[in-house]
Design a binder for these strands. Sequence first.
RNA 1: CGGGCUGUGGCGCAGCUUGGCAGCGCGCCUGCUUUGGGAGCAGGAGGUCGUCGGUUCAAAUCCGACCAGCCCGACCA
Length: 574
Amino acid sequence: MRWSNLFIPTLREDPAHAEAASHRLLLRGGFVRQLAAGHYSILPLGQRVRAKIDRIIREEMDAIGGQQLHLPALHPAEVWKKSGRWEAMGEEMFRLQDRKGMDQCLGMTHEEVIAILAGEVSSYRDLPQIWYQIQTKFRDEPRPKSGVLRVREFTMKDSYSLDVDGSGLDVAFDLHHQAYVAIFHRCGLQALDVVASSGAMGGSESVEFMVASPAGEDWIVTCDGCDYRANLERAESVIPQVDDGPSLGETELLPTPGIRTIRALAEAHPDRAGPRRQIKTLVYVVDGQLTLVLLRGDHELLEQKLVDTLGVANLRPAAPDEIRAALGADPGSLGAVGVEHLPVIADRALVGRRNLVTGANRNDWHLSSVDVERDLTVGQWADLRGISAGEGCPQCGGVLDVWRGIEVGHIFKLGERYARAMGAMVQNEQGDIKPIVMGSYGIGVERTMAAIVEFSHDDRGIVWPVSVAPYEVVVTVLRTDDPGTMAAGERLYSELKDLGVEPVLDDRPLRPGVKFTDAELIGIPYRITVGPRGLASGKVELTTRGDLSTVELAMDDAAPTVAELIRTELERLS
RNA sequence: CGGGCUGUGGCGCAGCUUGGCAGCGCGCCUGCUUUGGGAGCAGGAGGUCGUCGGUUCAAAUCCGACCAGCCCGACCA
């Protein structure tokens, strides 16, 4: 293509309101434009990148036996009511009515639709199956942000595996795991597979693929000594035991006028109520049931862990009046001692502790010398706290690090839930009728594009890996008004095409600086500079975008040299 | 949904405090010169100042409501 015919609206200045590197550079480089918050037009350059990612995904999905299909984006409410998610999805689902007043929604994912199709499979002989689609999903995000990283309308590859039993699902899950590793490697990304929570989808095993970036929205925990890696929502750690000393006897009432916080209590009684000696008592409403949640005073509750532990959909902190009605005191003076009428769930860091301080369920009073085993009725012990950097690795005792990541892919085992709901049953070898066992596997396509930019850019612009670059090489012609120079550029361009590479010919009658800056901004991996000065001695220049290194080449060698570099680079990324 | 901030030619911004011709830089169009890292000169096009209402002789500017967008938090397969 000739650059002069292309629509590549680069911006000279950084756009206002774009913080994340990928947002800023994709806008400046003319890859995307915002239509509304969370809705982006993908411009020709962006579309070329997207198409390459799309192709890589399809090749790897096909390699594990996946079959692409195309599903409706608009679904009748019936489908979602049947699985129970019409209510469960809440406000995040775009809903509308047709002219007859029938409820409809825009699909945010396609488990239900797939399970309906899976109903046509009736024998184990027809399994396993892997079906995938690459289509637009809609989610009414409360807060779209960071360009195409968090949007309301986006392309997602999602695949679904259908198996007759759990071991079949394990195989499909592992196949996807391998495929995802291959996909992200080919995209030039370092994506780490981490143990994750499966969230509201419901499922067992769950692995996320994360790319490190300050624009990410997830916290990832890794160990410096071993391969332990987990989403913060699932991460555990080893912390030093607290020595509580010998028992001090019965609990005692401790007057604490005006004290409502862990810190204030610790300052008032540093000898016996340091944060690690306190029990933090939180009150949640879990599916309508008031529940006490206990943690060590200096620990934070990680709500997702509570959700996962209890396996519930609806959970919220209790309101002050609900708390007062149930416990007779306000937040800041709460405790679980003597509470028998409400369920109590406690973090494992409290196991076996004694001589602790907690609220007395009476404003301005606490209880001291609390012995967890003796004085509390804990219905359930669980890992509930958010861990911090520097704590010990649960696998090897090494030091844990916590960093931000972008979730580019997520694979998890759904089990029988959707097949049961939608009636997708098969007969197994024994003739029993069983629900199909499903897995679900997603990749955000535009988000992957943005993650690549986050991962691979410098102060001049994007540095695309060859495998996803919109063009592989730009032939920059200086002095387009000089027939000899222009002809040389044209010749190089067609030689490159003949060698199977994807060149773009920068034939714009602009000053060199503008053309160099644009090429670097949009991140074409290689640039061949053709100018009268070099041509006088039969030379052109080859510049590599990554390190900006430049070498002189004989005009005749340029195209084959670049073709070979690209081939090598694609090989490395395969 | 809570907190902070912003809406003025395509992009980036000033003007608003103290009401009085709608400006600057870049980009765009025409011509000439120039051409190896964002050229020069000359001429030109382009704006319901987010929307609606109010105050006023007069509103980009003051007041009110609303809308949109950005950032933080909450939320989020």
